[in-house]
Design a protein around this nucleic acid. Structure first.
Lengths: 158, 158
DNA sequence: AACGCAGCTGCGACTCTGTGCAACTACCAT
DNA sequence: ATGGTAGTTGCACAGAGTCGCAGCTGCGTT
């Protein structure tokens, strides 16, 4: 999405966009820049998983009246817009996080619950293969893969 | 898991195991063979997605007193045992299905909701790579990958 | 065949998430 | 700056899934 157009203030990789930059970005793709959305966007920080409830808590000081539904809907919108990633780490609570240029994924052990990072280069071929074979643009931004870690496998424990 | 042990009655690929075969299989791995579990197992059919609620409905005629929690817990157990797969097709309802020798996955379009099959050979390399690089046994039995299908991509619509 | 215990089940309450509808408001055109 | 309108929000409700606990039961042992 036209990232090479206007570059009003700071470089994208230097820090996170300001609310006004977010607003412009939303408008450019035909979305409204509401205070709720901008506040929610500001509440998300790169590299940090946040649940919908976390976001609601962070937004409350600025906009106490924001409703839970709005948070969910906004997060979902931002996900579909490719601005944030949604991941279910298996805790019954979805985690949201702004998408960074360098993607990563997670391996979640069903035995001990340990979570380790999985770098995108291992996953990228799958994305490519799916696009080539099915013409399907897989939104694998932040995958959670469940299974059994080395320790739990050798330990034999569940 | 030790599939090459005793083969008491019918061949595994000939039909699905009888309740008694399931019972024996459960006991062999240190699990109790309760009527609830056997009934739930019998309610699952290969090649057919069933939600927890579906299973509850199918079990009801035989065991009217079975509780929702039991169904969830049993399904989860069977999943951890590697007997059934769990998949979230994005409908807010998880789908369960007995694991077949020939695995498949799904591509779910976030635009139009269409679901298409994805054959395992495309996914297998990822499983292998994760095992080699991380010693992690990825339980990718029945994956649901979200994204945008060919039609929705060319149509430009959301 | 009866016993005992660890494990399983049923129950109820609670959390997380999605949806319909009416009121509101950001944005475009004037 | 003002007005119209389509997109958003807030609210209330509904449904999926989880958890702790008390009581029951499958299964190994005697």
């Amino acid at each position: 999405m036209g990232r090479s157009s206007a570059n009003t203030a700071a470089a994208p990789t230097e820090g996170r966009p300001t609310p006004e930059e977010w607003a412009e970005r939303l408008r450019r793709i035909g979305q409204r820049a509401t205070p709720q959305r901008l506040t929610i966007l500001a509440a998300l920080r790169p590299g940090e998983h946040a649940s919908a409830e976390d976001v609601l808590g962070r937004v409350a000081p600025a906009l106490p009246a924001v409703n839970r539904s709005t948070v969910y809907r906004t997060l979902e919108l931002l996900r579909d817009l490719g601005l944030v990633s949604e991941t279910d780490l298996g805790k019954g609570v979805r985690q949201f996080e702004p998408i960074e240029p360098e993607r990563h994924h997670h391996l979640v052990c069903r035995g001990c619950g340990a979570v380790q990072k999985l770098h995108d280069p291992l996953v990228a071929p799958l994305r490519t293969a799916i696009l080539e074979h099915h013409g399907f643009d897989a939104g694998i931004e932040h995958l959670a893969i469940f299974g059994r870690c080395r320790a739990c496998r050798s330990g034999g424990d569940g």
